[in-house]
Simulated scan of single mutants.
Amino acid sequence: MNVGGTLLLAPRRSEHVACAAGGPVLSAGEITFSDGDVSEITNQSTGFCPEPESWPTVAAALDAIPVDRPDDFTTRVVFRLCPACNERNIVKDGWFVCDLCGADLPENWNFPVARRGT
């Protein structure tokens, strides 16, 4: 979803940053359609690392199509950037510890602001 609110789609094995032509986004992830409607949708994008709270902008874009859709991401992913080693991390089960170096991860989203378009 670019900063203009346009839903951009690309094949699954493509890179989200390439899909957005290198520009900032409001959200990114994976989407699966079944019979023309959204059956699965996530915010899983290691290129942009969007927060699950980006859902309302995604929902608005899907409603504009319109298609039937879930009420939220079917899989919600929490990303944090390690302040010690700069590694991107997926936080699982509320465990805010870097998988690479073991440093504590911040509770709040901490990627560069320009990456998410706000």
Rank of each mutant, 00 (worst) to 15 (best):
G4S: 12
T6Y: 13
L9E: 05
R12F: 15
S14F: 13
H16M: 09
V17C: 10
A18W: 12
C19A: 14
A20E: 03
A21N: 12
G23N: 07
V25I: 14
V25H: 06
L26D: 01
S27Y: 01
A28D: 04
A28K: 03
G29L: 00
G29D: 03
E30V: 10
E30A: 05
F33K: 04
G36I: 11
D37V: 12
V38C: 09
I41V: 12
I41K: 00
Q44G: 10
S45L: 06
T46L: 13
G47V: 07
G47F: 04
F48Y: 06
F48G: 06
C49Y: 05
P50N: 05
E53H: 09
S54G: 05
S54V: 10
P56L: 01
V58G: 05
A59S: 08
A60I: 09
D63I: 11
D63G: 11
A64P: 06
A64Y: 07
A64M: 09
I65K: 14
I65W: 14
P66S: 13
P66G: 15
V67W: 01
V67G: 10
V67F: 01
D68L: 15
D68K: 15
R69M: 04
P70L: 04
D71L: 10
D71P: 04
D72M: 01
F73W: 00
T74Q: 00
T75C: 10
T75A: 11
R76T: 08
V77I: 08
V77P: 01
R80K: 05
R80H: 04
R80A: 01
R80E: 03
L81T: 02
L81W: 05
C82H: 02
C82Y: 00
C82F: 05
C85M: 02
C85E: 00
N86L: 11
E87S: 07
R88K: 12
N89C: 03
I90M: 04
K92Q: 14
K92V: 15
G94H: 10
W95Q: 15
W95S: 13
W95V: 15
V97A: 10
C98N: 01
C98P: 03
L100T: 12
C101A: 00
G102Q: 03
D104I: 08
L105I: 00
E107S: 11
W109Y: 08
N110Q: 02
F111A: 00
V113G: 07
A114R: 14
A114M: 15
R115M: 15
G117E: 07
T118S: 15
